[in-house]
């Protein structure tokens, strides 16, 4: 059974806690098909009323950024993209 269980595909689970909010990634689980993935997500991740909607996505469908790209992706020093970079002259109103 262990061998077969290891073959169960991995799914990523997203829960939307209430109307108006975005789905948030909450974790992953194993399931043999989409229906079981949804059922398992309900049972494992919404036991205490956490959710109003569930998405399950095959983990194999996730495309992740490469840690080796960390500097070129995220390491840039571009403070001018933050509003706090700019000095607001005295007497300017409405911002």
């Amino acid at each position: 059974m262990t061998g077969e269980r290891a073959a169960w595909p991995l799914w990523e689970v997203f829960v939307r806690s209430r109307a108006g909010l975005a789905h948030q990634h909450v974790g992953s689980l194993h399931a043999v098909d989409a229906r079981m993935a949804l059922d398992n997500a309900r049972d494992v991740y919404t036991r205490r009323g956490e959710g109003a909607s569930l998405w399950v996505v095959p983990a194999s469908a996730v495309v992740a950024s490469d840690p080796a790209d960390k500097d070129s992706f995220f390491g840039l020093d571009e403070e001018f993209r933050h509003a706090s970079y700019y000095v607001v002259p005295d007497g300017v109103h409405g911002i």
Binding site: M1, N40, D43, V44
Partner: peptide, 12 residues
């Protein structure tokens, strides 16, 4: 149960 997820489901 045959899988952790199913274990929780059955307990529920």
């Amino acid at each position: 149960a045959p899988a952790l997820e199913e274990d929780i489901a059955l307990a529920n």
